[in-house]
Simulated scan of single mutants.
Amino acid sequence: MTEGNFVDYVKLHVSSGKGGKGSMHLHREKFIEKGGPDGGDGGRGGHVIMRGNSNLWTLYTYKFKRHFRAGHGEHGSKSRSTGADGEDVYMDVPLGTLVRDRETNEIIFEITEDGEEKIIAKGGMGGRGNWHFKTSTNQTPRYAQPGTPGEELDIVLELKVLADVGLVGFPNAGKSTLLSVVSAAKPKIADYEFTTLKPNLGIVEYRDFKTFVMADIPGIIEGAAEGKGLGHYFLRHIERNSVLLFLIPADAPDIRKQYDILLDELKRYNPEILDKERLIAISKCDMLDDELKAELKAELDKTLPVKYMFISSVAQQGITELKDKLWMMLNE
C-alpha cells in the first residue's frame, strides 16, 4: 500500500430514505360498488449501514465519494399492497473504524468485527394505508398516513490501526527500516525526519508459519499530545496495539531521557496506553564495538525500568531474538 492510499480520517454526509405514503384507495369491482378501503402501507425508507470488512486496511474508498443516500420507500397501492422498501446503502469499513457525529464530536459507535453491521442513518417508516382506519362509524376513511422522513447526518470516520505491535520512537529512529527487515512491507526510508507520514503495516512471519502484525507509527515529537507536529494524528493509532516496541538509536544523547519523553507523550494523550506491554529496542547497535556495548549495557541495567534489547536492522543483529521476545509477550 502506498502512502497516498492510506486514508485514516474522512468527513462524510449520509442520509437515509424517507418512508412511502400509505394509499387511500377504495375497492371497486364489477357488481361491488362500495367495497370499502383497501389502500396498502408505504414501504420503509432505506437505511445507511456500516459494515466491518477485515480485508480493508484504509478508508481510501471514501476519499473521493463523500455523500451517501439510501433509497426512498415506495407508496402503498390498492388491494392492501405494501410499497417496496427503499434500497439500503452498505458502507464497508476496515476494523477499528470509529464513527463520530461531526457537530457534537461524540462517538456514535465503533466497528471492530468482520461482518459486524450497524445502522448509522435509519430509514423513515412507511405510512399506513386507509384500510387501517376503518371503524364501525367510519366505513370509508379517505385518508392515509404519509411516510416519515429519513435521517441526515454529518459524520467523521476515524481509523485506528489494529496491529499487534506498535513501533514507537522519535523521527528517524529506524522504525521504517526495522519494519522493512522483519516483514515484506516497503515503507519509505530516508535520512531525514518525518519520512513516514502515515502508519505502515507489515505482517511479520514467525516460526512454524505463525504471523503477527507490526505497525510503524510516524515519529512522535515532544509536545505531540498537545497537537504539536502531527500530534493526535499519530498517537491515536497506538491505542489499538497490544505491545509497544520503543525504538531508540544507540547514538542517542540520553536513552533513558528519550524513553521518558516518549512515555510522557503517550501518558498525556491517554493514560490507559501505559497498561500495555512495553519493550525497548536499542537500534543501530552495529555502530558499537563489544567494549562500548558492555559499557552501555551496564549503564542501561541501572537506569531503564523495562526490558531492552540491542538490535541492528541493517546488520540483521538481534532480529530473530526480537521476534521471539515479541511473540512471547503477545502470547503470555
Rank of each mutant, 00 (worst) to 15 (best):
residue 270 N to K: 15
residue 199 P to M: 14
residue 266 L to K: 06
residue 243 V to T: 04
residue 196 T to K: 13
residue 233 Y to T: 10
residue 205 E to G: 11
residue 263 L to M: 12
residue 228 K to Q: 10
residue 220 I to L: 13
residue 252 A to V: 02
residue 200 N to C: 09
residue 249 P to D: 07
residue 217 I to W: 07
residue 210 K to H: 14
residue 215 A to W: 00
residue 198 K to C: 10
residue 228 K to E: 05
residue 163 A to V: 09
residue 203 I to E: 14
residue 191 D to Y: 06
residue 279 L to E: 03
residue 276 K to R: 14
residue 258 Q to H: 14
residue 263 L to G: 12
residue 262 L to M: 14
residue 283 S to H: 08
residue 252 A to H: 10
residue 177 T to H: 04
residue 259 Y to M: 09
residue 264 D to K: 13
residue 165 V to H: 06
residue 252 A to E: 10
residue 255 I to K: 04
residue 272 E to T: 13
residue 276 K to Y: 06
residue 217 I to K: 06
residue 197 L to H: 14
residue 192 Y to I: 15
residue 181 V to F: 09
residue 182 V to P: 07
residue 179 L to M: 11
residue 234 F to L: 07
residue 265 E to M: 08
residue 260 D to A: 10
residue 281 A to N: 11
residue 260 D to S: 11
residue 224 A to D: 01
residue 167 L to H: 01
residue 165 V to S: 07
residue 290 D to W: 00
residue 290 D to E: 03
residue 190 A to I: 08
residue 197 L to W: 05
residue 216 D to S: 04
residue 238 I to Q: 01
residue 205 E to F: 11
residue 169 G to W: 08
residue 248 I to K: 01
residue 242 S to N: 12
residue 282 I to D: 02
residue 165 V to K: 04
residue 209 F to D: 14
residue 178 L to T: 01
residue 248 I to P: 00
residue 276 K to H: 12
residue 190 A to P: 08
residue 212 F to E: 01
residue 266 L to G: 05
residue 268 R to H: 15
residue 165 V to A: 11
residue 189 I to P: 01
residue 213 V to D: 05
residue 226 E to G: 13
residue 245 L to A: 06
residue 276 K to I: 06
residue 270 N to G: 06
residue 256 R to M: 08
residue 190 A to Y: 09
residue 197 L to G: 12
residue 221 I to D: 04
residue 201 L to G: 04
residue 288 L to V: 00
residue 248 I to N: 00
residue 184 A to P: 05
residue 254 D to G: 08
residue 200 N to E: 09
residue 226 E to W: 10
residue 166 G to D: 14
residue 209 F to V: 07
residue 284 K to C: 06
residue 268 R to N: 13
residue 268 R to K: 15
residue 283 S to F: 04
residue 165 V to L: 12
residue 286 D to H: 02
residue 193 E to H: 14
residue 285 C to T: 09
residue 267 K to F: 13
residue 177 T to W: 02
residue 286 D to F: 00
residue 290 D to A: 00
residue 241 N to S: 15
residue 219 G to M: 02
residue 220 I to F: 12
residue 220 I to H: 05
residue 236 R to Q: 08
residue 200 N to K: 07
residue 274 L to V: 12
residue 216 D to Y: 02
residue 208 D to I: 09
residue 234 F to K: 10
residue 201 L to S: 06
residue 287 M to V: 14
residue 183 S to A: 13
residue 167 L to Q: 02
residue 176 S to M: 05
residue 180 S to T: 15
residue 191 D to K: 11
residue 232 H to S: 07
residue 171 P to T: 06
residue 233 Y to G: 00
residue 247 L to Q: 00
residue 248 I to M: 02
residue 183 S to R: 11
residue 259 Y to S: 08
residue 192 Y to T: 15
residue 226 E to H: 12
residue 192 Y to A: 11
residue 247 L to Y: 00
residue 216 D to H: 03
residue 284 K to P: 04
residue 163 A to Y: 03
residue 201 L to D: 03
residue 259 Y to W: 14
residue 207 R to I: 11
residue 222 E to K: 15
residue 180 S to E: 14
residue 244 L to G: 00
residue 166 G to C: 14
residue 256 R to W: 04
residue 166 G to E: 11
residue 196 T to E: 13
